[in-house]
Simulated assay, not measured.
Amino acid sequence: MADTATTLRRARIGDAAELARLSAQLGYPQAADAFERRLRRLLISADHPVIVAVGDDDAHLLGFVALERRLMLEAGDRVEIVALVVDEAARRRGIGQSLVDAALDWAREIGIGEVIVRSNVARELSHPFYEGAGFQRLKSQHVYRKRVGE
């Protein structure tokens, strides 16, 4: 992919298929209609912005970051980066850092002094990226799931 100017903007409902495409690159394949349903809910929430990176072609996403303002009983308010992905064809161009910077800017705008991100131990390339962006590793953990109602 040739270098193009990158612009950040808030996600729009028409971005659902592109968000699904990028999410599949991260290992979370989902149908575009599922993304559209979720995105409709997120777009009306002040606590769940989704910021996308676009090049000259505004319809083709180069990456996205999904954020969540979380009130945790034990830790108070935080912003969490719940998803960050840059298109495989657009990596190593500073887009990921721009998306992280947008997350930090949003946290400052809403008066939150801490941003956290969780990164799977299997994502070995993401760990030095986050550390290079100034994040400090706090802990490693296991994630458990139990399905209910099945």
Rank of each mutant, 00 (worst) to 15 (best):
S98V: 00
A89V: 05
Y144D: 04
A32P: 05
D101W: 00
D3F: 03
I44W: 00
V65P: 08
L22W: 06
I110C: 14
R21M: 09
V54Y: 01
R108C: 10
D87Q: 06
R38C: 07
V85S: 10
E74L: 12
E68G: 14
G113S: 13
D57Q: 13
I110L: 13
T7P: 02
L19G: 02
A102K: 07
A11E: 03
G96K: 05
G132S: 10
D58R: 12
R40Q: 14
Y144S: 11
E18Q: 04
L138K: 15
V52H: 02
T4V: 14
E68Y: 04
A90L: 06
L39Q: 02
A24F: 09
V86M: 04
L67M: 10
D33M: 10
G76P: 07
E88C: 05
L8C: 04
L43I: 04
D3S: 13
G55W: 02
I110F: 11
R70K: 14
H127S: 11
F35P: 02
D58Q: 11
A75Q: 14
G63T: 02
R92S: 13
D3K: 10
S98F: 00
D33V: 15
Y130P: 11
G76S: 09
L104H: 10
Q30R: 15
A89I: 03
Q136N: 10
A89D: 14
E88T: 09
G63N: 04
Q25W: 04
A53D: 00
V143S: 13
L99W: 05
A89F: 02
I13P: 00
H48A: 13
R40D: 09
V79Q: 09
P49Y: 04
T6N: 01
